[in-house]
Amino acid sequence: MAVEHHPTSTVYERVQQGPDFQELRRRFRAFAFPATAAFLAWYLLYVVLSGWARDFMGTKVVGFINIALIFGLLQFVSTFLIAWQYSRHAERKLDPLADRLRAEVEGDRDAGAAATAADGDAGKENR
């Protein structure tokens, strides 16, 4: 018994299999995975040092400000820095390709809607 494959895939499935979408995924992952790994390593370093290097983290730098407080504040700074870098990356590398894919999908959807409307009008004429 053979399984029949119907070539009727949705516009979204066709776009997902296309080279532009694959390139968009590659560009996203090229930023997201290394940035996530770097941030998690940085955060883990902060947690490990806070738990097992208390003397080092408790070292006073200025007044009541110690290394642990500076590292903690740098967590916020690095979070905002990564968000800013991602917005720049997305604007330059992801958005143009995503806009092109969106236009393709909307064009196919509009063409499909026009074809459906034309089929409906043709059915009315045959009555």
Score class of each variant (00 low, 15 high):
Ala117Gln: 06
Ala90Cys: 10
Thr79Gln: 09
Ala35Glu: 01
Arg54Trp: 00
Gly18Cys: 10
His5Glu: 13
Val48Lys: 03
Ser78Glu: 05
Val15Glu: 09
Val15Asn: 02
Arg109Phe: 09
Ala90Trp: 11
Gln17Asp: 13
Glu125Phe: 11
Ala38Met: 06
Asn66Met: 07
Gln17Asn: 13
Asp99Lys: 03
Val77Tyr: 08
Arg109Pro: 00
Phe64His: 14
Tyr46Val: 01
Arg127Ser: 03
Arg25Thr: 07
Met1Ser: 10
Gln16Cys: 03
Phe64Gln: 14
Ala30Gly: 06
Ala83Lys: 14
Ala111Asn: 08
Gly58Phe: 10
Gln17Leu: 07
Arg27Thr: 00
Val61Thr: 11
Ala41Val: 07
Ala90Phe: 14
Pro96Gln: 06
Asp55Val: 14
Lys93Gln: 12
Tyr46Trp: 03
Ala35Leu: 06
Val15Trp: 02
Tyr86Cys: 01
Tyr43Glu: 05
Lys124Glu: 03
Thr79Arg: 11
Phe80Gly: 15
Ala41Pro: 02
Phe31Thr: 00
Ile82Cys: 05
Gln75Tyr: 13
Arg29Met: 06
Leu101Lys: 08
Pro7Lys: 03
Thr59Gln: 11
Tyr12Leu: 04
Leu49Ala: 12
Ser9Cys: 04
Val47Gly: 05
Glu4Phe: 12
Trp52Lys: 06
Arg88Gly: 14
His6Leu: 12
Ile67Trp: 09
Asn66Ile: 00
Gln16Val: 02
Asp20Gly: 09
Arg29Leu: 04
Gly63Asn: 12
Phe39Ser: 03
Leu40Tyr: 06
Lys124Met: 04
Ile65Asp: 00
Tyr43Asp: 03
Glu23Trp: 02
Ile82Thr: 12
Ala53Leu: 11
Trp84Thr: 06
Ala30Cys: 05
Asp95Asn: 11
Val105Gly: 04
Val11Met: 10
Asn126Ile: 07
Ile67Thr: 11
Glu13His: 15
His5Gly: 08
Glu104Val: 05
His89Thr: 01
